[in-house]
């Protein structure tokens, strides 16, 4: 991330970001990208949010009328109005993040780089920010590059996922492909009417038994397995669980995927 934004000079290899070499043209590049570090703010701690944003206008040399127009738009989208005149130090984390996002977008960059933007945020703030990101991506065509440990962000936002493990590329592709890469079977959760020994049916393996509840990893078509289970047992409830992205990624990190050839 720091090489992409020109903060670090790569020791070897090369990088191009929006057609520029970040470490050589860092200042020029800064005009074309918006950067938000989730763990630190670019806003002035002691000044009202509005002041930091208007300073941003000067740093990025945005004409006053264009700035006013964009600020009005972002104020509406991110609901900044109630705290535009509040000193940044008094803002909540979610409010500050919305302020930082605004600061990063006022010069309308084609690329928005977000480093852990949802870290430490509550559920409501997270979803506001995700909705907002989806919207600017759709409406303005802003490319969004996001690093995150919150896989909810990934599932909600990303078309293309790159998994990096210890500095090596472990996966690069879409979400469905990512799911397909790692054989994480779907799981059928069966609630029986009464506790029973592990169910044995064709096309599934019982991996866990807890009282009347049993977990079956599916190897076959779920409908067929379900009919076999219901044929032999009295079933109170059934749930089919899709593997979540978290499971896929952790499987990837454990090296379960034979995808060395893709790298």
């Amino acid at each position: 991330m720091k090489m992409l934004t020109g903060i670090l000079t790569p020791t070897s290899g090369s990088v191009r970001v929006v057609g520029r070499d970040p470490s050589r043209q860092r200042t020029r590049l800064a005009r074309d990208i918006g950067v938000v570090f989730g763990q630190r703010t670019t806003l002035w701690w002691d000044l009202p949010l509005r002041d930091s944003l208007s300073l941003t206008r000067h740093l990025y040399r945005v004409p006053a009328d264009v700035h006013a127009e964009r600020l009005a738009e972002l104020t509406e989208l991110l609901e900044l109005e109630p705290f535009l005149d509040t000193p940044v130090r008094q803002l909540s984390l979610g409010q500050r993040m919305r302020g930082d996002l605004t600061a990063a977008l006022l010069h309308a960059p084609p690329l928005l780089v977000l480093d852990e933007p949802t870290i430490g945020l509550d559920v409501v703030s997270k979803s506001t920010i995700r909705e907002f990101l989806l919207r600017i991506n759709r409406e303005r065509g802003t490319t969004i590059l996001i690093t995150t440990h919150d896989l909810g962000d990934v599932e909600r936002l990303c078309d293309r996922v790159i998994v990096i493990d210890k500095g090596r590329l472990a996966f690069d592709g879409g979400l469905p492909e990512l799911r397909a890469t790692v054989p994480t079977p779907r799981v059928l959760v069966v609630d029986l009417a009464a506790p029973a020994p592990a169910i044995e049916v064709e096309g599934a393996v019982t991996v866990r038994v807890d009282g009347p509840r049993q977990w079956l990893e599916l190897a076959d078509n779920p409908a067929r397995v379900i009919s076999r289970v219901t044929a032999g047992h009295e079933v109170a409830d059934l749930t089919l669980r899709e593997p979540d992205i978290e499971g896929v990624v952790s499987a990837l990190y454990r090296g379960a995927a034979p995808n060395e050839s893709r790298v």
Partner: peptide, 10 residues
């Protein structure tokens, strides 16, 4: 890390 934020400004 505030030096990083200075570096990403034009």
């Amino acid at each position: 890390g505030s030096f990083d934020t200075m570096l990403v400004r034009p």
